[in-house]
């Protein structure tokens, strides 16, 4: 008869399993992406040379783009590079993929985080208010206003906010991205403090454009869930027992709400982190979305592989976190 494994071993096994799953997923994604890029007509050399150049396509020129190597070897070599920590050099930017993606990810991550903070801090209270109590008068205009966030196509929001912050408020020049780092004083050039407003505005405006649809989706979900919850008999029972207001909210409403809310937020966060292509294009931000699009249009295989790997990794992490949250929040799901 087997004795029960100790908790440590259980946790270790789980950890190893999860890591293996994660690695398998990352491999799967990279294989699919590589194949898709390979099967899509066109290659980086062709696109660089274009129509007007009379540069000769010598063997060594072609070799720079791994054009004479079979796709299997290319993929295998890429894997080998990964193990060494080498993500390769981008065909388009002539710089290490690792550096480019890290930088782009940094830019996108900051904007995505701000967007998420805006979305959650607006949608959660709003949804709770509308679902629990909500004056009839306010409910309709509020729900409509909120729904507009998702009804208006994202690139329209982008253009509107760019115009609002750039031309109406003159907080920045549209299209001239001001990174947060420019707020830091430069040694020789003097203080960078005059960059504070443009940099912050250039962070807030695109984040808002990204947050508006998220607010719409999350508010609606919260509102519906709360109404559904409040309709349940146990809520009435609690109310009769005299539990109301904050306590009810904290102990019961939120607990039941948060499972689904977290799922939605997780998915939205993943979308945001992958970089919103349209918003980044309109605001001219060097984020992950723009980088990925450039990479795909120019068939920069190494850049796309690197960027997708990062995003896939984040997807795995976020999924694991949301899964974990299910277990914490919904006891019914816990199994020994």
């Amino acid at each position: 008869m087997l004795t029960m494994p100790t908790p440590t071993i259980l946790i270790m096994t789980k950890l190893v399993k999860n890591t293996l799953d994660a690695i398998l997923l990352l491999l799967g994604v990279s294989v699919v992406v590589f194949s898709l890029l390979y099967l899509t007509p066109g290659n980086a050399l062709l696109i660089q040379v274009g129509v007007g150049s009379d540069r000769v396509l010598t063997e060594s020129y072609q070799a720079l783009f791994s054009l004479n190597t079979s796709p299997f070897i290319q993929y295998f070599e890429w894997l080998q590079g990964l193990l060494r920590g080498d993500f390769g050099v981008s065909y388009v930017y002539h710089a290490p993929v690792f550096t480019i993606v890290l930088h782009a990810l940094g830019v996108t991550a900051v904007i995505a985080s701000v967007a998420m903070v805006i979305a959650v801090s607006v949608s959660l209270p709003l949804g709770l208010y509308l679902g629990s109590n909500g004056s009839q008068v306010l409910r309709t205009p509020l729900t409509t206003a909120v729904t507009l966030g998702v009804a208006v196509p994202q690139f329209l929001w982008g253009i509107l906010l760019l115009y609002l912050f750039g031309n109406v408020f003159s907080a920045f020049v549209p299209g001239l991205y001001v990174p947060l780092s420019s707020i830091l004083p430069m040694a020789a050039a003097g203080s960078g403090s005059h960059n504070t407003i443009p940099a912050l505005a250039y962070l807030f405006a695109p984040a808002l454009a990204l947050a508006l649809p998220a607010i719409a989706i999350l508010s609606r979900y919260t509102y519906n869930s709360v109404r559904e919850l409040n309709a349940q008999p146990f809520m009435l029972a609690l109310h009769c027992r005299g539990i109301g207001g904050w306590q009810l909210l904290r102990r019961h409403t939120l607990r039941n709400l948060l499972v689904g809310y977290t799922t939605f937020s997780g998915i939205l966060l993943i979308d945001l982190l992958a970089g919103s292509v349209l918003v980044e294009y309109i605001f001219n931000i060097p984020g992950l979305g723009n980088t990925l699009v450039t990479g795909i249009h120019q068939r920069d295989t190494l850049l796309v592989q690197g960027a997708v790997l990062y995003v896939a990794f984040l997807v795995v992490v976020i999924n694991k976190i949301t899964d974990g949250l299910y277990y914490i929040l919904n006891p019914k799901l816990r199994r020994s």
Partner: peptide, 19 residues
């Protein structure tokens, strides 16, 4: 200044900033 998007370019040109 590298600005691919046309609408953004127009907005940038019409901006009142000194930049």
């Amino acid at each position: 200044r590298i600005i691919p998007h046309m609408t953004t370019t127009i907005l940038a040109a019409n901006s009142q900033s000194s930049n």
